[in-house]
């Protein structure tokens, strides 16, 4: 295995494009190193993107937030502006693993590990975040939900890698939230995750709602029906119940060591409801 740590996006693209299918991007490494040790992957080349300045920066301009691909959970959690704008995204990042994992784990790593249970992805999808992707043909931007196509599967081409996450401008009276269920209080992979992003008019009616669920399908899913159930309502109990039913109905989970189909389906509705409650409360407080 060869290790390279280029200092520019172009350098990384050149290495990755030349490395062929056995090249891997290293950001925080908290998934990659486990897979290396377990013999699940045996890359010939590892390209560490942490020495590329752009991947390590958090920027905010004109209310739009940009988070570098390799920013660690700990760094993001300490960023007051990011936290104020996208509390759901930040809390989803801070839920990945332990304090030690937080010191390394990144948004891009969490996304590109392509696990359906990744904590940040439902929050990023609910936030309508976009990935900035660099590759041999230059830079392109795609919605986060288009990056993973299945467990362990990415839509990225040879030589491409995620450089940053770009967020839309936050409308007034809007906020997001993320909740996940794990059997313990820490250290587990999400059995179900729910990201909700809501915006309200000045009369307290929901004008936009995005509900995304993790660990209930081969990829994180954006449940449009769940969002629709809230739009036009005050997110009252009846609306939340309808939203929860839509969330549960959209689940296509599997039975595995972390949960059953029945359990995931039920709890998806519960968590979506609770996350929507938190997002609504935050939106109200943001007035």
């Amino acid at each position: 295995m060869r290790y390279e740590a280029p200092e520019s996006v172009e350098g990384a693209v050149a290495l990755l494009a030349g490395g062929g299918p056995r090249g891997r991007v290293l950001a925080g490494g908290t998934d990659l190193l486990v897979q290396l040790r377990a013999g699940m992957v045996a890359p010939e080349l590892v390209v560490d993107i942490k020495r590329i300045a752009e991947t390590r920066k958090i920027r905010e301009a004109d209310g739009k937030l940009v988070i570098g691909a390799a920013v660690s959970g700990a760094e993001l959690g300490e960023h007051a502006v990011a936290k104020a704008l996208w509390p759901g995204v930040v809390e989803s990042t801070e839920l990945i693993g332990s304090t030690q994992i937080q010191g390394r784990a990144s948004l891009a790593g969490n996304l590109c590990n392509a696990s359906p249970a990744a904590d940040t992805v439902p929050a990023l999808v609910a936030a309508a975040a976009t990935c900035k992707i660099a590759g041999p043909n230059g830079v392109r931007r795609i919605p986060v939900e288009d990056v993973c196509t299945g467990p362990g599967q990415l839509s990225l081409g040879d030589g491409e890698f995620v450089v940053a996450f770009e967020f839309p401008k936050r409308p007034p009276r809007s906020a997001d939230a993320y909740l996940r269920f794990i059997p313990r209080t820490e250290m587990d992979i999400a059995v179900v995750g729910a990201g909700v992003n809501l915006a309200f008019d000045d009369g307290g009616r929901c004008v936009a709602a995005r509900v995304a669920l993790g660990a209930v399908a081969p990829t994180v899913i954006l449940v449009e029906e769940a969002g629709q159930a809230l739009v036009g309502t005050t997110c009252d109990a009846a609306a939340l119940q309808e939203m929860a039913a839509a969330a549960s109905a959209a689940c296509r989970p599997i039975d595995d060591k972390r949960g059953t189909v029945e359990y995931r389906t039920k709890v998806a509705g519960v968590l979506a409801t609770r996350a929507a409650g938190i997002a609504a409360q935050r939106a109200k407080e943001s007035r």
């Binding site: 313990r184 250290m187 587990d188 992979i189």
Partner: peptide
Amino acid sequence: FLDYRIPV
């Protein structure tokens, strides 16, 4: 220790 869940 990820999925054999001893108390943390």
